[in-house]
Nucleic acid binder design. Structure first.
Lengths: 239, 239
DNA sequence: TGGCCGCACTCACATATGTTTATGCTCAGG
DNA sequence: CCTGAGCATAAACATATGTGAGTGCGGCCA
């Protein structure tokens, strides 16, 4: 089975065999983290970065009154903390939402890659830039869209991101995320998440039973969520 | 006068003379953009990136009902669209909030830097990672803090960022940003921005007359905004 | 010098979303 | 087969923030 990171990057630009080999060799070990466990903690100074191979994970921060905000949801192929390579100190934690299979890449190896593989370096840089683009999109959705639109937007995004790494089954994705976690992602209460999901269901836009989320009307869902995929950089071009 | 980007980067790690020279030489030309003009437009595919030398600028997105969300506020030393080097298509616009002096750096030159200067490349990468860290912090503030706390947080951040590039005068910074623009940044209405500023003033935390913003009680302001500066990566270390 | 125009500021009222509390489903474990 | 935990769902009520409309000030320009 191919490394989902390679899958993700090759969607954006071609990788040489050398580069692919360098990526594969960068993996020092593979570990498994159980659901609800921390993968990295706020304040940590990791000496390696974690690449998600399987499962769902979230970056999060806790604020004073114990409330939590999730600032990123991660799917296979995503680096969870590639930024710790240069930022050094984690300004947030990373949590496993399901059982996660994780490849660890030592920062020393990343440094070597930046010395020897300029194009591959740009591709890794790109992957953090996409994270940033997603952050901006979330900011816009959170600040200026209604809760319903925001939820629709998130669903559109997750569908495309999962599809891009071969994790969509037709119009259905597995989304093993509780309504409380969705609330922490969207900045809403669980109660309101529930209301909003009901509405999307009532409108015939989605089905969502158990973990299985099915898109029933992609076009209308996109419209409700004011979704355009530009920010995901899904095009293959020279970078 | 030193290039504020060099000032900004040298605060995070040492730069060699060669690297500084490479940065200076990367500037193809300098242009001036008047307040309220677009510097880059959503959908553009720039062939050069813009480095802000003087003035204030904002990244923004307009949503369907005409509402606007500002996803980043930029001060001198910030790249406005370094990410366009690899993301290629702008997923948002960039606007001059005041008259801006801007240095343009061709993407071809950036590519050359990534080929020849690994450490400098990492420092440029770092600067986009700091943008990302700020985005995450804004997400948390927007999703889980009260409007007042969010405003306090933003003020703390801008104060430190301006101070880091020598643009603070004691406890005072120039913040030539209207309340409407602050609203678009925080995801609030102008009316509520006004209420929240009154409250911070009444509490004796800030003075804000005209463009001059003075921090009257840093410790309490930090506390109200639940502000910690980790995410700004202000420490000098090997990167 | 007069008159706009942009902006800060106010008030009255509207509403999206939060809070609290409770119910019932489903599924894993004993 | 029962039990409890975790989760989705529900209803009643509370509130932070939005909306719409308006005032007044200060600076710029004719």
């Amino acid at each position: 089975m191919t490394n989902p990171l390679i899958l993700k990057l090759e969607q954006r630009d071609q990788l040489s065999d050398d580069e692919k080999k360098a990526l594969e060799n960068a993996i020092a070990r593979i570990r498994v983290v159980e659901a609800d466990e921390d993968i990295v903690r706020e304040g940590d100074r990791p000496t390696e970065s974690s690449l998600l191979l399987d499962g769902f994970a979230a970056r999060y921060k806790i604020v004073s009154n114990g409330r939590r905000q999730i600032s990123a949801l991660h799917v296979p192929g995503d680096f969870l903390d590639l930024h710790s390579f240069l930022l050094k100190t984690m300004d947030h934690g990373v949590l496993a939402l399901t059982t996660c299979r994780i490849a660890t890449v030592p920062h020393a190896t990343l440094e070597k890659i930046t010395d020897e593989y300029p194009h591959l370096t740009r591709m890794l840089w790109l992957s953090t830039l996409i994270d940033g683009a997603i952050h901006r999109e979330w900011l816009t959705a959170m600040g200026r869209l209604s809760a319903t639109a925001h939820m629709a937007h998130l669903i559109c995004e997750l569908f495309l991101r999962l599809k891009a790494v071969g994790r969509a089954d037709g119009d259905t994705i597995q989304l093993p995320v509780t309504q409380a976690e969705l609330g922490d992602t969207l900045g809403l209460s669980t109660v309101h998440v529930n209301r909003v999901l009901q509405e999307l269901r009532k409108e015939g836009l989605i089905r969502f039973q158990g973990d299985a989320l099915t898109i029933l009307d992609w076009e209308r869902l996109k419209k409700v969520g004011e979704f355009t995929s530009t920010y995901l950089s899904l095009q293959n071009e020279d970078r």
